[in-house]
Design a protein around this nucleic acid. Structure first.
Length: 614
RNA sequence: GCGCCCAUAGCUCAAUUGGAUAGAGCGUCGGACUUCGAAUCCGAAGGCCGGGGGUUCGACUCCCUCUGGGCGCGCCA
């Protein structure tokens, strides 16, 4: 649809330039759908843009455009100048009616485009350490990453979803040690307690908080991962090995036990993801990176490019870290030449590589695999990390925008109208699994996708668990279910859905609401392309809500005015409207599918609404 | 102290990426079911777009600054 308006304006501008009436237009002229329908179907600000270049007032330029409008096919019903110099185009209804055919023939592919031109893009998301089950914060990143990937795929990019498994660091070694402790418990050996007085459960004073901290630290040395989720793996380990590893060495704990625990944790994570219907194309192991010497080759390349040097970093600004500071020469990446605040170390004092070094190698690996665009979905707590990784990717790829990092902000849980603090110790830890089981997949996904990801999200645990109309997911699905119901009724009445017929539509779809609905659903392909390029899945949710609202409003008018019903005495109107509803249903289904939300044919009325409903 | 993110109706959030009169849901108030699903619809009230400056035909959007909240700040991943 946009292309039609763009073509008219573009050719009109070209004609004016040819005749010497106006200077050539710089770039491609912008057309957009005005907020108010009174301002036409499409609007162009070309006259305002040309004001300076042409040395004429914008309205005079708009007048020239109007007089020279190029429209050989007669798609423009009316054009007018408005406001400071907008040129507003009113498209002939016939154009829209005809376009409905595309919706119906393209079916579930309607909305797909090739703006991505097969460009290879990797979306790396979740990548949670395999040290425990996923929590709700991970869930947001998972859903957003998945939806962005789906959108990019629909926009014609060639998308790979990857999970980076951090299986090489100290965290997973600690996991192995925790499993060892749990395993011994399974074998009847009690876990030693710290040689400290037991701390207060709810520390109130500073002194009590200190005791609590000391206790927690001492406990962490024995059992770094205190939750219950290692109990089942410990049991399984015992079944497999009996009591053969009761006196495992620390090396065994950090290899054998670690590998076992990690395997179990990854299985849990995969289960959690499956509950959200999220799958990955590739699981990339950090160990693999070390094994093939990827870090060395990344460092070699950066050295070759002159981005590495040996130097001393200034002391940390934050007081608590400054005490430990010791001036030391180390291998640094010159991140400051790409806009970072500091140069960043690649090696620790013991000579081992930093996590950053591994991350550089990992991103180089992605580029080497042929991905032209990299998208990373990270939690907000990694915000301070963005600049240096982007710097590294820029150095490696030579492009400033090869890496796009989506920082998914924190999820604040709310229960009973109050902030709900998550604490493993207090037993108020909410796993993603718990949430999905209680709220359901659709509701969880919609909640995570309703807001831009760069803003914090308030997640109301009561609301999402409530099976009622307060829950936004029901409204968006109801639009689809209602369409389905119309077809069910039509079938019951023996009314068939006609094949596409332009003259039928011209005779039957006469109400302004119907044309407005049609126009709205025809914007879907551009919406998808825009949302993909902006990496903003929330646009789709808002669109479905708006489309659903417009449809419900139209539908309800039929209650008062029988001639507005879809199914009615006039077969022409009925047929034409069934075609419109078919298009609507298709767009609802496509939009919901893109978001990974189901499009139900029928929705159960929840029990608490049943009484008031009758 | 520095960096990144956020601030829009009582609450939770949008705003076509610089466009015309800033919109939804929830909540409040008032209406609408004898036939396509009332999980719905219609209407009303509710706004100094955090404050101030700037950029231009035009700013919620871009720049500067201040205030308030969040996240992070060598050798944790």
């Amino acid at each position: 649809m946009k292309a039609i308006a763009q073509q008219v304006i573009g050719e009109t501008l070209a004609k004016c330039a040819e005749r010497g009436l106006l200077p050539p237009f710089p770039g491609t002229p912008a057309v957009e759908i005005p907020r108010s329908a009174a301002h036409g179907d499409w609007s162009s600000n070309a006259a305002m843009v040309l004001t300076k270049l042409a040395g004429k007032p914008p309205r005079a330029i708009a007048q020239l455009l109007l007089e020279n409008l190029v429209d050989p096919e007669g798609v423009i019903e009316k054009a007018e100048i408005a406001g400071p110099g907008f040129l507003n185009l009113f498209i002939s209804p016939r154009v829209y009616l005809k376009a409905l055919e595309r919706v119906l023939t393209e079916g579930e592919r309607f909305g797909y485009s090739d703006v991505g031109r097969g460009r290879r893009v990797m979306v790396e998301f979740v990548s949670a350490n395999p040290t425990g089950p996923m929590h709700v914060g991970h869930g947001r990143g998972a859903v957003v990453g998945d939806a962005v990937a789906t959108l990019l795929d629909a926009a014609g990019y060639e998308v790979t979803r990857e999970y980076y498994v951090n299986d090489a660091g100290g965290q997973v070694k600690l996991l192995g040690r925790s499993l060892y402790v749990r395993y011994r418990e399974q074998c009847g050996i009690e876990t030693p307690r710290p040689a400290l007085p037991p701390p207060p459960a709810n520390p109130a004073t500073e002194e009590e908080r200190k005791l609590r901290r000391e206790w927690d630290e001492a406990m962490a040395a024995i059992l770094p991962y205190p939750g219950d989720y290692l109990v089942a793996p410990a049991r399984k380990f015992k079944e497999l090995h009996g009591e053969a590893y009761l006196d495992a060495t620390i090396e065994q704990q950090e290899s054998l036990f670690t590998d076992f625990a990690m395997g179990e944790m990854l299985a849990v994570i995969k289960d959690d993801l499956r509950a959200l219907n999220i799958t990955f194309d590739t699981w990339f192991s950090e160990r693999q990176l070390h094994r093939v010497g990827a870090i060395d080759s990344a460092i070699a390349k950066l050295t070759e490019q002159g981005h590495l040097f040996r130097g001393v970093l200034p002391p940390p600004k934050e007081a608590s870290h400054a005490e430990e500071y010791e001036a030391r020469e180390q291998l640094l990446f010159k991140a400051t030449s790409f806009g970072d605040d500091q140069d960043r170390p690649l090696q620790k004092s013991d000579g081992a590589y930093t996590y950053f070094a591994a991350d550089i190698a990992y991103h180089k690996e992605k580029l080497d695999r042929g991905f032209e665009t990299l998208i990373d979905v990270w939690g907000a707590d990694h915000g301070g990390y963005v600049k240096r990784v982007k710097a590294a990717v820029q150095a490696l790829s030579g492009q400033a925008d090869a890496l796009d990092v989506l920082l998914v902000q924190m999820v604040n849980l709310v229960k009973n109208g109050k902030p709900y603090r998550m604490s493993k110790r207090a037993g108020t830890f909410v796993t993603l699994r718990d949430l999905v089981e209680e709220a359901g997949r659709d509701a969880t996904r919609v909640m995570f996708l309703m807001k831009r990801c760069d803003a914090q999200l308030e997640f109301d645990l009561d609301l999402v668990k409530k099976q009622s109309s307060d829950n936004p997911v029901f409204y968006v699905q109801y639009g689809h279910a209602r369409c389905a119901n119309i077809f069910k009724r039509a079938a019951e009445a023996g009314v068939g859905v006609p094949g596409f017929d332009l003259s039928l539509l011209e005779r039957g779809l006469l109400h302004p609401d119907e044309l407005a609905l049609l126009k709205q659903l025809l914007t879907f392909p551009e919406l998808v392309a825009g949302a993909a390029q902006a990496r903003e899945p929330h646009r789709i949710i808002y669109y479905v809500q708006e489309l659903s609202a417009a449809f419900q409003s139209y539908y309800t008018k039929g209650k008062r005015e029988p001639e507005l019903r879809v199914l009615q005495a006039d077969p022409v109107k009925t047929g034409a409207r069934l075609l419109l509803i078919a298009g609507l249903k298709q767009v609802f289904a496509n939009a919901l599918t893109l978001m990974g939300v189901s499009a139900p044919e029928y929705m159960e009325v929840p029990p608490e609404l049943e009484e008031s409903g009758e």
